[in-house]
Design a binder for these strands. Structure first.
Lengths: 240, 240
DNA sequence: CGGCCGGTTGAATCTCTTCAACGTCCGTGG
DNA sequence: CCACGGACGTTGAAGAGATTCAACCGGCCG
């Protein structure tokens, strides 16, 4: 009996994987899953690790299993802007392009399921279902990117911070009861990262957080743990 | 003999259409093209026409044949942000969602080829090739959106204007010789639109254009016709 | 002719940045 | 063991860039 697959035929790697159901792998049948799992492996990277450099050749794709990955662009004079945050079980990669136009870095400790570019592309040919999932995620990311364009273009520093906290709460609050009004999470980003994400400076980020704290919209412990007693009140600060 | 198809079997509507080759219709074979053309028709809208309201139900898709369409979001207090400009032969629509999260408005006089949502979706099932084209366009738009996030988040007003002019030049310069250093085009947007696109005010847009003119990086006639003697010099102002 | 729309320009104001100082936590090495 | 240095965060004061408010111009339409 094979050791790399579970008794029901699901690869060991995949049995407890979130992406198996909610991520792109949900599009695959047993056989395809086994094929992909054969070439894939779990990879851990600690916070700060560069996963992919700008203009670097891409030869693997990945799925985020846990943690947060930041995608960023840097201008020639060093100014940096984070253009997206990827959470589990997001797909990581840019089909149809061999070079990355972005850099990817682990914002927190991260675990990934990586597999060769070619393996996924072969599967994509075989499974329209898989391609559709990828298409859907691209559209979702496009929606998010446009949401963010509004935030960057038209919101004040205070609104940006509120919008950011709201977005994080929605993505990683462990007590993910969808219709509870309070939230409680650990910030996956440093102040510097938040600044790079919002197009602000760290000082402005700090000041705005302090203000939200002073107004009792949030409270923060150990610089990282955020408690939001009322998401509605936070939302009112986000200026939508 | 049928009047709606050309002698070689290509629908009349499509023979001279750019999207037939470079746009999504290039993915279709003769038969599929005929099927789609049967339900589609050419539509003209003059500058300023609202094509689709925010939160409006979507029941048609379209391809831009000429002109420029702006996609925008508006905050509750009236602040507006243009999140994308669509040029020929871009696809217009959001598959897998029945409601629009954006408003679409003709920025210039526009002609569109519209067809029912259902018709395209049926074709998408039948043609993985078509779905792949749509997927590709979504990825391209995502790249653009992220490019724009950098511009909005990290560039100065002057750099934003330069980046904008560059983007327009690349998309609609009629003398589209790829490696000529000069360009010459008509601005498809008013100052107000440019401001909404760049997250600035009209006054700032005006001042920055004046400055570029003073520095002889561009010249402008009749408020709309822009001449760029050296794209390289303009690019140097874009801060990439 | 008068009024409106789109655009430009000037002066005052405000928001965010810049520069600088300081506090805390934590790992390292004397 | 404690002192040192670095990473990360907060806070204050001064400064710059963009906005706001206002006036003005030219073209176009009724």
């Amino acid at each position: 009996m094979r050791k790399d697959v579970h008794t029901d035929g699901t690869p060991r790697l995949c049995v407890s994987c979130d992406a198996r159901h909610k991520g792109i792998c949900g599009a695959l049948d047993q056989e395809q899953l086994v094929a992909l799992a054969k070439t894939s492996h779990k990879q851990h990277a600690e916070s700060g690790t560069e996963l992919l450099g700008d203009a670097e050749r891409i030869n693997t794709y990945a799925v985020v299993l846990s943690g947060v990955v930041k995608l960023a662009k840097t201008l020639s004079d060093g100014r940096q802007q984070i253009v997206s945050l990827q959470f589990a079980p997001d797909f990581l990669g840019r089909p149809f392009k061999s070079e990355s136009a972005l850099s990817a870095e682990a914002a927190t400790d991260v675990s990934l399921c990586t597999f060769p570019k070619a393996a996924l592309e072969r599967l994509m040919q075989a499974s329209p279902e898989l391609e559709r999932r990828l298409y859907r995620q691209a559209l979702d990311e496009l929606d998010q990117a446009r949401e963010w364009i509004v935030t960057l273009g038209r919101k004040t520093a205070g609104e940006k911070i509120a919008s950011f906290l709201l977005m994080i709460a929605r993505n990683i609050d462990p007590s993910a009861d969808p219709d509870r009004d309070s939230a409680n999470f650990e910030l996956p980003l440093t102040r510097a990262d938040i600044a790079d994400f919002l197009g602000l400076t760290i000082e402005t980020v700090s000041r705005q957080l302090t203000r939200l704290r002073a107004d009792k919209v949030i409270s923060i412990e150990n610089n990282r743990n955020v408690v939001v007693p009322s998401l509605a009140r936070l939302e009112a600060r986000a200026g939508n």
